[in-house]
Structures are given as C-alpha cells and as structure tokens.
Amino acid sequence: MKRILSYLNALTLRGYARLQVFAAQEPVRLRAALTSAALAVALVVPGLAADGIAEKIGAVGAIALPILVGESARRKVTPTD
C-alpha cells in the first residue's frame, strides 16, 4: 500500500511540475483551457451559470496568470550591466 501511495504522490508532483512549465510557456492556452473548463462546468451544473460565474473565473485567470508567470520569469532573469 505504501508503494502505491508513493507512486501516486510522485505522479501528482510530476503533473504539478508539468502544469507549471505549461503555464510559464503557454499562458494564453492555459487561460483558454481554464475558461473552457469553467464554461463546461457551468453547462453541466446549471446553478453555476447564474450571474456570470464562468466569466468571473476567466477574468481572474486572465489577471492572475500573467502576474504569476511574470514573477516566475523575473526571478530567472539576471540584470545586465
């Protein structure tokens, strides 16, 4: 059982790392995927479609992702003299 849990933990960490790399390299595609997922959930669960929830989630993603990706890229860049 411990071996299965260890494998699932490693799989989760790999997925998280790949998601971070994808977010850094393709922020526009990630925002589009998140907005599409929010719209799909709003379609399946009609209660979430009220009051523009999907649009609010998309707007938060459009604002937050460039900030997070920008901070990550800023740390990697060294200033030149």
Rank of each mutant, 00 (worst) to 15 (best):
L5Y: 12
L19W: 08
G70W: 01
L13I: 13
L13Q: 10
A37D: 02
I63F: 13
A37K: 03
D51K: 10
I67L: 14
G70V: 08
A24W: 00
G52M: 04
P46I: 08
Q25W: 02
P46F: 07
A17I: 10
G47R: 13
A54E: 04
P66R: 03
L34R: 01
P27C: 08
V44T: 08
Y16I: 15
L8F: 14
A73I: 09
I4L: 15
P27T: 08
P66D: 06
V41A: 13
Y7P: 00
A37C: 07
G61V: 07
R18I: 05
A49K: 03
A64V: 14
R14Q: 09
A32V: 06
A33K: 05
A73G: 00
V21R: 13
G47F: 11
L68Q: 03
G15H: 07
T35C: 06
L39H: 05
R74I: 04
E26S: 12
A49M: 04
L13R: 11
I67W: 06
A49L: 05
N9L: 15
E55H: 04
T80D: 10
V77P: 00
Y7I: 15
A40E: 02
V21K: 11
T12D: 08
A64N: 01
A50W: 09
S72M: 05
A37I: 09
V41I: 12
G15R: 06
T35L: 15
L5I: 12
N9W: 13
Q25F: 06
D51S: 10
L39G: 00
Q20Y: 04
A17G: 07
K2Y: 09
Y7Q: 12
L30G: 02
V41F: 07
L68I: 10
R18Q: 11
A38N: 04
R75I: 02
L8S: 13
L48A: 10
A64E: 07
P79G: 07
Y7N: 09
A38S: 14
L5G: 12
L13T: 09
A73W: 06
A24H: 01
T35Y: 06
A24D: 06
G52A: 08
V77Q: 12
A23M: 14
A40N: 02
G70Y: 00
S72G: 01
A24E: 10
P46S: 04
Q20A: 14
I4K: 09
N9V: 15
L13F: 11
V21N: 07
A59M: 07
A73Y: 02
L39I: 03
K2H: 09
V69I: 11
R74F: 09
F22D: 08
R31G: 14
A73S: 06
M1V: 11
